[in-house]
Nucleic acid binder design. Structure first.
Length: 124
RNA sequence: CGAGCAGACCGUCUUGUCGUUCCAAACUUUGUUGGAAAGGAAAGUCCGGACACCACAGAGCAGCAUAGCGGAUAACAUCCGUCGUUCCGACCAAAGGUCGGAAUAGGACCAGUGGCACAGAAACCAGGUACAGUUCGGCUGUAGUGAAAAGGCUAAACUCUAUGCGGUGCAAUGCCAAAUAUACCCACGCUAUAAGACUUGCUCGGUCAAGUGGGAGGGUAGGCAGCUACAGAUGCUUGGUAACAAGUAUCGCAGAUAAAUGACAAGACACGACAGAAUCCGGCUUAUAGGUUUGCUCGAUUU
């Protein structure tokens, strides 16, 4: 039981395939809670993992690479610690997108992730 | 001690918890332990190389770059030294010279073309007025403006001279898997001319076959190498005015691929700026809170 609750988020769970990403944006559903947006799609991919996840920040809104790195790391960390709250019964791919226009703090991102996960669980 | 200028350097730290990438161990199965993990600019992509591919990469023109001299270097538009020129300050002083500091795209205007502010009648195919002279000519001299009146200045003006430069960039390129979409297979066409494609912007030269009809076929976009051990870093010695070179000792210092190097909490103080590797080096340019330090100048204080 303790083994189940380790908060790893290794590279094998990151969404890399261009085809899957394209499919995700064409057919995926979207949940929004400022300043984040989650796009997800149940897809039967070939990996062993239960889900694949990616994080994205607009290059137009944040021109400096340092800021984009910071936001992606905050989103990644917030999701890493709450990944077990997400109730999923089929394989799923998802993309977390930061839609705000100012640098957030960690608490803000964490709360937004929590709300979106809760809403996701309610709709399933 | 304070201020200014110039140069060099550093550019948050400590602990804990939870993580990410790579490497190495033992063990064993995707976990454990240990180690390593962005910058002085990683940025702009402005120069110079290394490396890779393109085989006519050849000739001429065009184009681009550089510009006293000498040196350093793999190379440079970088760096070092030195001479000249200009400016500032001090001293001596008749012109000028000496010392210190700063700046400097600093070859050629006896090849050609162009430009020459203001002032001035006139400024680059010139030439007015007044006076004087005169061989009586729209000739000569003087006055006057100006840096310059026909002889000069100007090439961060065209240009000329000298030297250098083939093109494309790691999304290069090679291999494996899978596959065969400017590709493949079959038939016609049959190398002469023209046209075409490629080769550096153009010309010459060179290379290639183009073209028409039919066939089957809807996939992959993943992995490995390149990829970080080297014009490598640090210390010492020697040579050199210096840039730098040689020798020697020690060290191993990111290698990701949609892209790791993080998040949070507590504490400390100077309260944290600009900012994130992407083939690799040498420079240049731009951004940068704060701090350390060296030299020079000025002021104050103490002995």
């Amino acid at each position: 039981m303790k083994n189940e609750l380790k908060y790893h988020l290794p590279r094998s769970k990151s969404l890399k395939s261009k085809i899957l990403i394209e499919q995700l944006f064409k057919q995926g559903k979207s949940l929004k809670k400022y300043p984040l947006r989650l796009v997800y799609l149940p897809v039967n991919f070939s990996h062993e993992e239960k889900f694949l996840v990616a994080f994205s920040v607009s290059k137009k809104k944040f021109k400096r690479a340092v800021d984009r790195n910071r936001i992606k790391r905050l989103m990644r960390e917030a999701f890493r610690l709450q990944q077990h709250d997400l109730l999923i019964d089929e394989k799923i791919i998802m993309m977390w997108i930061f839609t705000g226009s100012e640098l957030p703090d960690y608490q803000e991102v964490y709360n937004s992730v929590r709300l979106i996960i809760r809403e996701f669980n309610d709709t399933h």
